[in-house]
Design a protein around this nucleic acid. Structure first.
Lengths: 112, 112
DNA sequence: CAGAATCCTTATGGATACTG
DNA sequence: CAGTATCCATAAGGATTCTG
């Protein structure tokens, strides 16, 4: 499911590469949530009501494998904890996400 | 399949609204192609090798129904012609598409 | 807690033939 | 030319149970 490979299509349409990284029912919401700081698996799950652990894992794995997020883990009283956070690379995407968000906010404002 | 309805998720994550408009295997490429001007059904089909007429119709219908594109048609020697072009609303999305494209171009440049 | 495993439903896309 | 109609394949997502 990794989208890190380039493709002829993406040379014709560079926007496609970026889109593929952030497409998926929950990816944008994960990335959006992490803008305010790292979060563990459970926190993300709570922040995204309705997502199943399998799907959350799938999306996180894709984001990690595409280099946008990094995962860390540690033990506390014999219990595993994890944290997902932007990589430096992933962080460069935030202004782009903001552009997407601002556009939609402007559209909504214009309608009202 | 219209994504024009707002949703609670999109208030938490405004970027999601924009993403939904341009997600789909060919949507970005259609929008990218039309940046250089309107195009008919056949031209788009040729510009997107591998797309089937059904799927092209689906994507165009979605883009029109979401208000990003407009469709016009006319007759010439008893043969139907069509043209798809940005609406004024859709055109406001072009800078956002450019942001997506520029980001991917920068990443590719950085890798090399 | 953080997932892996399994099974299942739905959404998306595709090939092809046909029509006004 | 510009699609529709039909049938089909795969991908994406989801519910649930289980494990270190």
């Amino acid at each position: 499911m990794s989208t890190s490979q380039l493709d002829l299509k993406m040379i014709d349409c560079p926007a496609l590469f970026t889109i593929q990284l952030i497409s998926g029912k929950w990816k944008t919401r994960i990335l959006w949530h992490l803008r305010s700081g790292a979060a563990g698996f459970g926190e993300l799950k709570r922040a995204l009501p309705g997502i199943s652990p399998k799907v959350l894992t799938q999306h996180l794995d894709a984001l990690v494998s595409d280099g946008l997020l990094a995962r860390s883990q540690w033990n506390e009283a014999n219990v595993i904890h994890s944290a997902y956070d932007y990589t430096d690379y992933g962080r460069t995407l935030i202004p782009v996400l903001d552009a997407l968000g601002n556009w939609s906010a402007n559209q909504r404002a214009a309608v009202q």
